[in-house]
């Protein structure tokens, strides 16, 4: 079985090639980035809006997250950054979860891409129960997006465009900690061109993850391994990610990446008492080390997430 998986992954890697650009810059969600961005089948916090909206359906408490980052630092002439703000508000289990986010990528002085989204997700267990299916938990979600771009030309002329689209997400939680996720993004392929038709490429992402309370023999606690396969109209990408939560789940250590970059991440959870009892503050940091871009001290991501009681 393992050999078959490795063979399949090798085959996928062989066909992996990248030509990403328009709204593909997935540099949001520090926890997700610490795991390389392989989050489609993990998707269990406010990062899920960018990776698999379905995952917000199983969240039980409201959460707000803010991220800021600096990409490819130490490169003169390159001033890139990404920001992310997200909020998740679970309603009753019967009604699902609402979410909203703003994600921004900026090539300072030249170009900016903003994504505003409103999401809805829900557990489908009640439906499955009616179908007498209990061996899997299914979540589904939809994310409505409003996209904006702005470009400043060399002669300081400004151009802008906008468009609507939506994503669909599915998440399957199986026994033994195995999850499978599917995210279908930019379904309407909005035209973001200034002078010519320039539609965002339709993206399908398949994710697979495995969670264990403890990996035997190695004694790795709360361990998650994840793999995403991103397909974008002829351009494919494999992303892998790992996470382990230590010290009673408070300290998270992460790693992941893709063909041209390796990421590492750390996270710490602060629990509060008193009036904020049962609330939590997450501080996450991720570092991206480019493998092909030279002379860079990497990309740095920092987020603060507050989970309400």
């Amino acid at each position: 079985m393992i050999k078959k998986i490795i063979t399949l992954l090798s085959a996928l890697a062989f066909f992996s090639n990248q030509a990403f650009a328009l709204f593909e810059t997935t540099y949001w969600g520090v926890r997700a980035l610490g795991m390389g961005g392989a989050f489609t089948a993990v998707a269990d916090d406010s990062n899920a809006l960018m990776y698999n909206i379905a995952g917000t359906g199983e969240m039980e408490k409201p959460e707000v997250s803010f991220m800021s980052s600096k990409l490819f630092t130490s490169l003169d002439g390159v001033d890139w950054g990404a920001n992310y703000l997200a909020g998740v508000y679970p309603l009753d289990k019967r009604y699902g979860t609402l979410s909203a986010s703003w994600a921004s990528f900026a090539n300072t002085g030249y170009r900016r891409e903003d994504t505003f989204s409103l999401g809805y997700a829900r557990e489908m267990d009640d439906v499955l129960k009616m179908l007498d299916i209990e061996w899997v938990s299914v979540l589904a979600g939809i994310n409505f997006k409003y996209l904006m771009t702005e470009t400043i030309d060399d002669d300081t002329s400004k151009y802008s465009s906008s468009g609507f689209t939506f994503d669909l997400g599915l998440l399957f939680r199986f026994e033994y900690g195995i999850s499978f996720g599917y995210s279908n993004k930019y379904l309407t392929r909005p035209d973001m061109g200034y002078w010519q038709e320039d539609r965002i490429k339709h993206t399908n992402v398949l994710g697979l993850s495995y969670y264990s309370e403890e990996i035997p023999f190695f004694k790795i606690p709360r361990f998650t391994a994840a793999l995403d396969y991103e397909m974008r109209e002829g351009s494919n990408l494999i992303i892998f990610g790992l996470e382990s939560k230590m010290i009673d789940g408070k300290l998270a250590v992460r790693a992941g990446g893709w063909e041209s970059q390796v990421n590492f991440g750390l996270g710490y959870i602060f629990d509060f008492g008193g009036i904020l009892e049962d609330s939590r503050l997450y501080i996450d940091y991720a570092f991206g080390l480019p493998l092909e871009v030279t002379d860079s001290t990497g990309s740095h991501f920092l987020s603060i997430t507050f989970r309400f009681p």
């Binding site: 990248q18 030509a19 990403f20 650009a21 593909e24 810059t25 540099y27 490819f72 890139w80 990528f105 990408l237 893709w258 063909e259 041209s260 970059q261 480019p290 493998l291 092909e292 871009v293």
Partner: peptide
């Protein structure tokens, strides 16, 4: 001269 995309991949 090398040109990279936003994922740091040489194009």
């Amino acid at each position: 001269v090398r040109i990279y995309n936003a994922r740091g991949k040489v194009v």
